[in-house]
Design a protein around this nucleic acid. Structure first.
Length: 194
DNA sequence: AAGGCGATTGCCT
DNA sequence: GGCAATCGCCTTT
């Protein structure tokens, strides 16, 4: 199977099956300022009928893309200041997506650093700040320069913002309940590398 | 037309 | 560990 076909298969699955398979996949954003790329290391699954999902109360203007074809980006704005990114998954018509909660950046660290901290990267790397670069959903969005304009972008075909397939690795995966929600708090649909 | 609140983060104690 | 910041969306009048 080709890389694109592998990805296509992964995002065609229901969210709770798709999410753990998106762990380890690569996401890249090429913007006028430069390229940032890294490995997805933490995800959460949300789907229609799931009380914690934005689609629980049906389709709205904000969530419409979640009901569309798999592989598109669902971006939402929250807490008055943060953007968060999801990969739309499952069959066309199902309101499902996988929230990208953390990415390990291995290309474009300088650019990511500038976007996050509004300053040039110093020769003396702060270990904590490096770790904090993209270890949260809104941190990832900021580090990658992703905002409203990414809404609905097809991550399987777009030339600037795209997923690329990586073979599964031996990295140990942990499964836990989702973070920061008030409904369906016991549903264990968060996956991350140990 | 108005009000409450969130799939978060960073700073303060 | 607690809490403020900040605003678009959705629900309720």
């Amino acid at each position: 199977m080709s890389s694109t076909a592998n990805l296509k298969h992964i995002v065609s699955l229901p969210a709770p099956e798709s999410a753990p398979q998106l762990l380890g996949q690569r996401i890249t954003h090429e913007s006028p300022e430069g390229l940032v790329s890294g490995t997805i290391t933490e995800v959460e699954a949300y789907q229609e009928g799931d009380q914690a999902s934005h689609t629980f109360n049906g389709k709205t203007a904000r969530t419409s893309v979640m009901f569309g074809p798999a592989g598109q980006m669902y971006v939402y704005f929250t807490y008055g200041m943060h953007w968060c990114c999801n990969v739309v998954v499952d069959e066309d018509g199902k309101g499902s997506a996988v929230l990208i909660r953390a990415v390990e950046i291995d290309e474009g660290v300088d650019l990511a650093w500038q976007r996050r901290y509004k300053e040039k990267i110093s020769t003396e790397y702060s270990a904590k700040r490096l770790k904090d670069l993209s270890n949260g959903p809104a941190k990832f969005a900021q580090a990658f320069g992703i905002g409203k304009s990414a809404y609905g972008v097809d991550l399987l075909t777009d030339n600037n913002l795209y997923l690329s397939y990586e073979e599964p690795t031996e990295r140990k995966i942990v499964q836990t309940p989702r973070i920061g929600i008030s409904k369906a708090v016991d549903v264990p649909w968060r996956w991350l590398y140990k």
